[in-house]
Design a binder for these strands. Sequence first.
DNA 1: GACTCGC
DNA 2: GCGAGTCAACGCTAC
DNA 3: GTAGCG
Length: 299
Amino acid sequence: MLLHRDVVVTNPKKVFWPDEGYTKADLVAYYDRIAPFMLPYLKDRPVVLTRYPDGIKGKSFFQKDAPEWVPPWIRTERVYSKDAGRDIDYFIVNDRESLRYVANLGTIPLHMWGSRIGSLERPDWLVLDLDPKGAPFTDVVKVAHALHRLLEELALPSYVKTSGATGLHILLPLGARYDGEIVRTFARLLAMLGVEAEPDISTIARPLRSRDGKVYVDWGQNGHGQTIVAPFAVRPLPAAPVSCPLRWAEVTARLEPGRFTIKTAPARFEKQGDPMAPVLGAGIDLVAALQGLERRLGR
DNA sequence: GACTCGC
DNA sequence: GCGAGTCAACGCTAC
DNA sequence: GTAGCG
Ligand SMILES: [Mn+2]
Ligand SMILES: [Mn+2]
């Protein structure tokens, strides 16, 4: 492997979260400490950085294309973008120093593809993103439970995390077994069934104005080049909350997603381990799942 | 945040 | 050596 | 073709 140099934090005392006084050094220290839990998810995936070089109150921008000047030990992978009509050299964050490097660029959240280099057309998970738009978080919990019940009926394993902001993400393991197009279709079907179970409080309608007060069941992040906020990613919000893997038993009306921050999350996972880790393991049998759904519709 | 350019 | 200027996103659906 | 959304 190319020789790494240790990433020295530039401007370590720069305040990134003014209300709390958290600094850029705090951000990098968090990513450094959570790396053992976070890196398995990032491994071999194109990532999208959301950079806030002047902290959460400053101007931000997305970054997909790694500049020419990144050090040679930073891995990048070239992926053709049809829409942009060009190649993009995505950052690949497979080790602690690379994570420290992108954090030092002022990256607060990292988003990641659902698929890996070598199997870019076959995602490792299906994701449903439950987003309250003016809805109470307790409604997000209700919709999550409706989906969890449905998935249990179908004998499908699922894992849940906070988005770090106001929503929840439900992931099903796929093990890169299926083409993204099929996955997308199945995700839309699951989203529709979730809304069917909780029609008064959820929707799959895309326009923001038409979903006010409801939980948006977003299946659209399943697809080529689509991303989700990585588990353990930090959000540019007061208190520096993080996307936090949960046990299903924790998903109750009393769940407070804001409790999980760069200050509280590391101890939690060092103590309890990561309940979402199995999503990276063996994938479900989609054909059997569709047969199960057919039986269910027959009743 | 980090690079390049002009002075 | 310094300040100024520049750059850092795309995929997809619904209309 | 593109506005809207993530
Ligand atoms: Mn969301
Ligand atoms: Mn700056």
